[in-house]
C-alpha cells in the first residue's frame, strides 16, 4: 500500500472513531427525545461530566477499565436524579419548561466541574493495553481508535438487541410513537421515562470516557461535542437511532476528510450538509415526528 492510500485509510479510521463516539452521544439524545419529547440541552454536559468522573476514577485507582465501567454509571445516576426530581415535576407544563430546565441543568454541571476540577486541561493517558499501533495487512492502525469503534459497535448491537428482541425494547418503541397510549395500557410510563433517561445519559457517559484520552478533559468538551451531536440528531431525524448512526458516521468522515481536502471549509461542512438535507427533507433522513 502506498503512502497516499495509507493516509486515506488512517483518516478514515480517525473519522470513523469520532463518528462512533458521536453516535453514542447522539443515540442517547435521540432516544430521550423520541420517547419523552424532551430536547435535552444538558446532554453533552453529562458527556463532559462523565469524562471528569473518568479522570477522577483513574486518579484514585489508576485503572481506565474501572473508570470505563463506573463513570458512565455515575453519570446515569445523576441523570436519573435529574429526571426523577426535576424533569418529572414539570413534565405536565410542557416542552418549554422542560427545555429551560435542561438549559439550567447544563449550566449547573458546567460550573460544578469548574468548582471541583478547575478550568485547565486534565490529561488522561490512553490505557497501556491500547497504546500504540497495530499492524494489519501492512497498515498501522492506532489501537485506541479501533477500540472505540469496536466498543461502539458492541453498544450498538446491545441497543439493537434490547430494542428489537426484548419486551422492554418493544415498550420503548411503542412509547416513541405514543407514550400516553402506552400509559393507558397499564405500563408505568413515568418509570419508563426515568429508565430511558438513565440509559441515554449512560450512553453519553460512555462516549465521554471514550473520548477523554484523545481530547483530554476540560470544560469545553461539551461545546465541542454539543453542536455536532445536535446536528446528527436533527439530520438523522429526531427519535431515529438508525438515522443517528448513519449521520454520525458521515459526520465523522466529513470532519476528518474535510480537514484533509478542504481545510478552510472543514468547520462548516457539517452545517452545509445539514442545510442540504433539511432543505430536501425537513424531518431529517428518518424523521417521522413533525415539529
Amino acid at each position: 500500500m502506498d503512502a497516499t492510500t495509507a493516509m486515506y485509510v488512517a483518516q478514515g479510521i480517525h473519522g470513523l472513531a469520532y463518528g462512533m463516539v458521536l453516535f453514542l452521544v447522539a443515540s442517547g439524545l435521540t432516544l430521550i427525545f423520541g420517547m419523552m419529547g424532551i430536547l435535552n440541552v444538558a446532554h453533552t454536559a453529562f458527556f463532559m461530566l462523565s469524562a471528569y468522573f473518568c479522570y477522577q476514577v483513574v486518579a484514585w485507582t489508576g485503572s481506565f477499565w474501572l473508570a470505563l465501567l463506573l463513570a458512565p454509571i455515575a453519570t446515569a445516576i445523576v441523570g436519573i436524579l435529574v429526571e426523577r426530581f426535576l424533569l418529572r415535576r414539570i413534565h405536565a407544563f410542557g416542552l418549554l419548561f422542560e427545555l429551560t430546565l435542561t438549559i439550567g441543568v447544563m449550566f449547573v454541571i458546567m460550573e460544578a466541574v469548574k468548582v471541583f476540577w478547575g478550568t485547565e486541561n486534565l490529561p488522561l493517558p490512553v490505557p497501556s493495553l491500547l497504546e500504540g499501533l497495530v499492524s494489519i495487512g501492512g497498515m498501522d492502525y492506532p489501537i485506541y481508535r479501533l477500540f472505540i469503534i469496536g466498543l461502539s459497535l458492541v453498544i450498538l448491537g446491545f441497543l439493537a438487541f434490547i430494542l428489537y428482541k426484548t419486551r422492554m425494547g418493544m415498550v420503548v418503541r411503542a412509547a416513541v410513537s405514543d407514550a400516553d397510549m402506552v400509559n393507558a395500557l397499564g405500563i408505568n410510563v413515568p418509570r419508563l421515562f426515568m429508565f430511558v433517561f438513565g440509559v441515554g445519559t449512560w450512553l453519553a457517559g460512555l462516549a465521554g470516557v471514550a473520548i477523554a484520552p484523545i481530547l483530554t478533559v476540560f470544560p469545553g468538551l461539551a461545546d465541542q461535542m454539543g453542536m455536532d451531536a445536535f446536528i446528527v440528531v436533527i439530520v438523522g431525524g429526531f427519535g431515529s437511532l438508525g438515522g443517528a448512526l448513519m449521520v454520525a458516521i458521515i459526520s465523522g468522515l466529513l470532519s476528518s476528510y474535510g480537514v484533509q481536502f478542504v481545510s478552510q471549509l472543514a468547520p462548516v461542512l457539517m452545517f452545509i450538509f445539514m442545510a442540504v438535507v433539511l432543505a430536501i427533507k425537513p424531518t431529517g433522513f428518518f424523521g417521522e415526528r413533525e415539529g
Binding site: R167, M170, R173, A174
Partner: peptide, 14 residues
Amino acid sequence: RIFATLSVLENLAM
C-alpha cells in the same frame, strides 16, 4: 392509536 411501527402481534403484547 395503534402503535404504527409495531406489528399486530406486538401491539397485542403491549
